[in-house]
């Protein structure tokens, strides 16, 4: 009996010790990295509480209201700038601006070796991942991209009204996904987002990624909603302009560790 008691005591002591270690000390060689996405329209921060209520002016001068923004990114990757080894996080991130629970991304499998890194991810899904119907959580969000346009999934659904300062506001549906060249001929349309900044991961870290929604209408293509409002999904030129504009939408924010 005494032996059992001692064993229990020992066990308790041990667990107590290891808990301490987790709480205070630096993970010796690996860090857990999570991501926090913030959204803005130039200087204006957007979140679930305000994004539907703002009159926003785009580069071309139209005043718009936003109804809905949902977007998908995947293959979030940290590339070690010393040895070029990359650490790719599992899964994808589906964000709905109306639901703040979707702003953060905390990958489960998460052991990034300490070191100097650059961040990279895919806008949407690349061809390998953009498989028709393969992701139940995206299916129930009706996030699918029609077969007749190449199938797979949306990358972006950005809906709202423009010319809201006039007597004739009109809807726009800025939806991005696979581009249809002609009937039955499709072209991949994802984008690789790379950030030039290098940073040091020395501890568990939270990396902020900023998304400036205004840039979808800005750079390099100044978007004229009077010409390109809806439907844009089957419009090859519009799809390719979106693929170009998304490259200037994201920037690296604060890194907290």
């Amino acid at each position: 009996m005494k032996k059992i008691a001692t064993l229990i005591a020992l066990f308790l002591t041990l667990t107590a010790c290891s808990e301490d270690a987790d709480d205070n000390a630096v993970a010796e060689t690996n860090a857990s990295v999570s991501f926090k996405f913030t959204h803005n329209w130039n200087d204006q921060l957007l979140d679930s509480s305000n994004f539907e209520n703002l009159d926003l002016t785009n580069e071309n001068g139209e005043v718009i209201n936003i109804d809905r923004i949902r977007y998908l990114i995947s293959r979030i990757e940290l590339i070690n700038t010393d040895n070029n080894l990359s650490y790719v996080f599992d899964g994808y991130k589906f964000t709905d601006l109306s639901n703040e629970d979707t702003y953060d991304f905390s990958p489960e499998t998460n052991a990034v070796p300490l070191g100097n890194y650059q961040l990279k991810f895919i806008w949407g899904f690349n061809e390998q991942d953009n498989i028709n119907g393969a992701y139940p959580d995206l299916n129930i969000a009706s996030w699918n991209w029609p077969d007749m346009l190449g199938g797979g999934y949306h990358f972006l659904q950005f809906d709202g009204m423009y010319n809201v300062n006039t007597t004739n506001p009109a809807p726009f549906n800025y939806h991005n996904g696979t581009a249809r060249v002609s009937e039955g001929v499709f072209e991949q349309n994802f984008a690789t987002i790379t950030f030039s900044e290098s940073f040091t991961i020395s501890n568990n870290a939270t990396i902020e990624v900023k998304m400036n929604i205004a840039q979808f209408f800005t750079n390099p293509n100044t978007w004229d909603l009077n010409v390109l409002d809806t439907p844009l999904m089957p419009n090859y030129t519009a799809q390719k302009m979106m693929q170009e504009n998304v490259l200037s939408v994201f920037s690296l924010g604060e890194i907290i560790q």
Binding site: G133, I140, S142, N144, P146, D147, N173, M233, P234
Partner: peptide, 26 residues
């Protein structure tokens, strides 16, 4: 089905599902 899935015609699928969301609602 093509009308239902065509953004230029029905555009029903953004709210009412599609063959990969057989609930036929969002």
């Amino acid at each position: 089905l093509n009308v239902f899935m065509d953004e230029e015609r029905g555009d029903c699928f953004h709210c009412h599902g599609n063959p990969n969301n057989p609930l036929w609602t969002d």
